[in-house]
Design a binder for these strands. Sequence first.
DNA 1: ATATTATCCGGACCGTAGTCCGTTTAGTAT
DNA 2: ATACTAAACGGACTACGGTCCGGATAATAT
Lengths: 206, 206
Amino acid sequence: MFLVSLIPIRSGTPSGSGPERSDAARNRELLLCAARQLIEECGADGLTMDKLAERAGVGKGTVFRRFGSRAGLMMTLLSDSEAEFQGRFMFGPPPLGPGAPPLERLIAFGAGRIGYVLEYGDLARAADHSVYNRFEVPAAVLWHRHIEYLLREAGLDADPWLMAMSLSATLDPERLLYAVRVQGVSPERLEESWRQLVTRVVRPAE
Amino acid sequence: MFLVSLIPIRSGTPSGSGPERSDAARNRELLLCAARQLIEECGADGLTMDKLAERAGVGKGTVFRRFGSRAGLMMTLLSDSEAEFQGRFMFGPPPLGPGAPPLERLIAFGAGRIGYVLEYGDLARAADHSVYNRFEVPAAVLWHRHIEYLLREAGLDADPWLMAMSLSATLDPERLLYAVRVQGVSPERLEESWRQLVTRVVRPAE
DNA sequence: ATATTATCCGGACCGTAGTCCGTTTAGTAT
DNA sequence: ATACTAAACGGACTACGGTCCGGATAATAT
């Protein structure tokens, strides 16, 4: 029904008109490899498009033709783990996947997302940053729809779209990383607060 | 108790060591005036620091000495309306100000903030953007503390700091503007969803 | 008035994301 | 093998935020 696509993230491969040329494919691999190297050395924030082009031994134009933008590159780097997470919450075992009651799935979704952000946080933040509309990135749309769907299943008697927006906001990488890294909040405390939040949200008003 | 400062926003005036020099004061006025002009003409996003310096007839260095950064300039431009809003929710008449029950104050706070963001949204977004930590801006800290305080007053039996973070997230300018401008959500619908959210949050778990 | 000094000024300079376009090359048809 | 073409390449270029430092200037002391 709302199953859009499991891997909605541009992988750097142009979608239209046949397979890509061999030099293009080779350069894409070179770039992804160089990007992972640089991130290991300098962190995601320290990766610049110039350094990446130089390290990969290609021109700067090639980098942008492959990935469109810095955010596009970051999303490509995240696509594997993102697809894996999407697979787990859509088709995997309960309580994250189908089979468990909606509230439990919501709680598990938050916990899963918190874990994901804490693992790939810098990358996720770099991907969000400076993309014109972070909320229309396919992956973000999918999470939103998933939360909205679970809210409806749980019988929410309020505005599901906006309530899903509020819940998504809570799981924003930038905010979660601030809480953990700057404020020293533990992941367990985050998960518990998320549990409290969604439990209250789905309970009917009076 | 948690009353930090009513006007915690850098006004472009250096805080330390006596009054500013007359040429500095004159240039600050020139710059603020030019900034408002440019925003009227090009919108907040269209304002660049180079154009601003040229329009005001000063060097670029002067712009950055006054305001520190683009975000600092935007905050300075917002400081009057921000101080006015702070005054209303801290000392003004109920239900926004003290005197009303905490839940009603929370509801009014959200409505007030939604109105504020819809009025000064682009400016607020530009101020948030590219400041290293948006969450440590004095105004943001004050809102957070206010929400946290009201949650405690309302007898919240969950993590007040994190719950205040979740509620703040819902009121993020970027998200609210996306909902209204791109998704066509009405301000009334936003307010109603906020009301539903905070009402559920403050109600005790079982 | 003159000298002194702390502050401020200006604009050249840097790093970065993203664009543009003349040149090269991989695939294909003959 | 050769010619052709669409795609890809590369790196100079632009726009922007932000820094730096030698020179100018406002306030103050004498």
